[in-house]
Design a protein around this nucleic acid. Structure first.
Lengths: 248, 248
DNA sequence: TCAAAAGTGTTGTAGGTACACCCATGG
DNA sequence: CCATGGGTGTACCTACAACACTTTTGA
């Protein structure tokens, strides 16, 4: 229900007087698995685009913001408990409003990008069992303009890795610097020098903080690596530039 | 009118079955005048917020995208000819969708940032004579959530100056490096070293290109400065970092 | 004792900062 | 001839790339 009763609506604002718009959210939920960037896709069960891959999403309800709708959909699609979903990185990407982007009616969609760690149980049961992790590029044609959204999400993530501490959002609560570096290398598709990466990360105050005394084996062999948690910082100064980087 | 006739609308998609949303665009039109960043504001002529400053904007029409609506509104508010408006920098900022952001009804607004040069005739006649350039911060309380939008626009502009060639959008077609530097200093609020700024700009291929043989006096006194045009590049590599910079 | 992964050290160089200095114009 | 702004040169220094090297584990 709208905030205003009919009595408070002035001329030109009768809610049903004009061609109505539907407002939806689309989610680009990304993770790093097996050395590749993956995105959460669903198989559409109905027309249009029946049987094709699409981004999860849904309508913005009358009394919630787009951000709240995105968080709600994220919880539904992942099946994770609320307190976990509340901690996931979710950020507005862009709004897509081409008049013909949905053949049924006028739908304006606010797209969000979510960065989640490689979940032990990829996406819980419930009504979202049709959801799957799909590697970037391993789909041929997505429903609606979702391919564009996915490409925009990937560009944004790659760019933000340069000047923010966002990469920790792909990591579990405790992680090694080697794992963090693999996240960077996967997202950027380039190899990084390990000693230099290590120094750079540790030299940025608040990027990561060491878990005292903890260590973990990573590859089965090799020296156990120290464990780190994500720090409080969000910005990276100076930035960590891609080798052959295109910034934007 | 919607793309689909009623016959093609499946269950759950009757355009009038749910609480309707209005979709609008809001414009943060910015320029640099007299050494200060200014924004184009209008005085609201009707309730709510009658008499207060607000961002220009309006409804997205049934057959246009939000970007097209923003460009149309920009033309209306500035009163400039279409071919000039087509060249102005206009970029989607963010979408604001708080359920109570408009007391009348549910309005989702896609905000755009426009960067325009200091126009000889600030904002032409027509139905937009109520529009004025106002320095950033020289307003006490804007209508709706527009103060938030303006703050977001300023942050975005400041951040993008670091790693894009956006600053030329604030300059006339031909400008001196001194003028370009003043744009940076105004937006960032910091002084920059002139020789270093000059070298940095010229060292970035495609940032600016010199207008052969042309020169112009700037401050009345002093050596005439060479003139430059905006180049084809959009990205800045490596970035031009703010002295005491906060990146995002 | 070898492979694999973590972690430390070192050196060369690109790029940025902070200046000093010269040039051209108007008053 | 002085003030003002454009333009050049240079020394210092930080930060990064590249690589060698040591450490600690499993097999």
């Amino acid at each position: 229900m709208s905030a205003a009763g009919p009595a408070r609506v002035p001329e030109g604002y009768d809610p049903h007087a004009f061609e109505p718009f539907a407002v939806t959210v689309d989610l680009a939920v990304c993770t790093v698995r097996d050395g590749a960037l993956h995105i959460l896709l669903i198989r559409r069960g109905e027309e249009p685009y029946k049987g094709e891959w699409a981004l999860p999403g849904g309508f913005v309800l009358p009394r919630e913001s787009a951000g709240q709708a995105a968080r709600r959909e994220l919880a539904e699609e992942t099946g994770l408990p609320d307190e976990v979903v509340a901690g996931l990185h979710l950020e507005q990407l862009r709004t897509y409003s081409d008049p013909d982007r949905d053949p049924r009616m006028r739908v304006v969609s606010v797209a969000y990008t979510a960065l989640v760690p490689d979940l032990p149980e990829p996406h819980g049961g419930g009504d979202a069992a049709h959801a799957q992790w799909v590697p970037f590029g391993a789909y041929a044609g997505l429903a609606f303009d979702h391919e564009r959204i996915v490409a925009d999400a990937r560009d944004r993530i790659g760019a933000k890795f340069e000047y923010t501490c966002l990469a920790t959002a792909f990591c579990p609560p405790e992680f090694t610097l080697g794992e963090l570096q693999q996240v960077y290398e996967t997202v950027w598709g380039t190899a990084l020098d390990r000693p230099n990466f290590r120094r750079k990360v540790l030299a940025t105050p608040g990027f990561v903080e060491q878990v005292a005394g903890a260590a973990r084996l990573t590859g089965g062999r090799g020296k156990p690596a120290a464990l780190y948690r994500a720090g409080a910082a969000t910005a990276l100064h100076p930035p960590l530039l891609r080798p052959e980087g295109r910034p934007s």
